[in-house]
Design a protein around this nucleic acid. Structure first.
Lengths: 160, 160
DNA sequence: TTATAGTTGACTGAAATAGTAGGGCATCCG
DNA sequence: CGGATGCCCTACTATTTCAGTCAACTATAA
């Protein structure tokens, strides 16, 4: 079992997508700027998210990604899953052949833990996250910073 | 966050220790044989378990390791912790500086997940595991196999 | 005194992570 | 029509961790 930057980035990016869905497709460049994730890395993650059917892409200028389904029907567990970070805690992938073809001493413990984690994460949708106050606050802060960066860029262009 | 062979082996070995505590210290060699874990690797793990005060060692022939505390007061979370497998799901170690010194968009989500996992694992003691029927069955099977290996060894010695 | 068993440190191959680099291709806009 | 935008894809790389090995050492019971 592992949860690393890969899975965390995927959820963060999907949440960013959901938060900015109202104004059409969201480009990876925007997400990269707001969330501080490298663009190339995001491209890799979204390739997987697209193959899993969680997002759809729109090419060309003004394009980007959108959620394939409503934010109320996408949960955190399937996002983490889509980027190949198995939240399974067993060594044997639940098969029970962890020690010479038989169950190891702690097999059932890890099975229970796996279920616990999966239940927790699959019960949280993107919409649930959007409605959380801390997340709204963080998102607002990020948008403001992004806007001020754009202003800075425009004013330096004007002075050239 | 990660749970790999390291943490799983540590819990398995500690459980083996608890199961065989009645007949004095348990040698790593015995655990290695029963649980199919390499002796050298066990030595590394028990060095950490000892430094964390979970086990005490008895040197010399007939020596081995014992639990430092009763099996009712050692929980799974602290065992996993002792071998440096942090079950913390956040990137920032709960500090909240995950994105340029501030909280990332999903900080609270991973915080909640961490608590969920920790609560689950810290609520299970070695004694709880010992009392589980599947574990008793697996342990009985392992002991039987270990005994038959000893018989085999003795009979081949006799024929030399 | 010898075999047992813990103690310690250095080392290693394989795998995964967390990226980077650099091509392409589709599409909109002027 | 052509260039800018943004997705798409493959290959590459540095670093870290895991999982395990090896070797030398110390303590102690029989």
């Amino acid at each position: 079992m592992r949860l690393t930057t890969k899975g965390r980035y995927a959820v963060t990016a999907m949440l960013d997508l959901a938060l900015h869905a109202s104004r059409g497709p969201v480009s990876l460049n925007d997400i990269s700027g707001r969330q501080g994730i490298s663009l190339s890395y995001l491209e890799q993650l979204f390739a997987k998210l697209r193959r899993s059917g969680l997002v759809a892409s729109v090419r060309g200028p003004g394009g980007g990604y959108r959620l394939s389904r409503e934010d109320t029907s996408i949960n955190v567990a399937e996002i983490v899953d889509a980027v190949n970070e198995s939240m399974d805690a067993t060594r044997c992938n639940r098969k029970g052949d962890c020690q010479e073809g038989l169950e190891c001493l702690t097999h059932h413990l890890w099975l229970d833990l796996s279920d616990q984690i999966h239940n927790f994460l699959s019960d949280i949708t993107l919409n649930d996250l959007i409605e959380r106050r801390e997340i709204q606050a963080t998102a607002a802060r990020q948008d403001e910073r992004a806007n001020s960066r754009i202003d800075l860029l425009l004013s330096s262009e004007g002075s050239n």
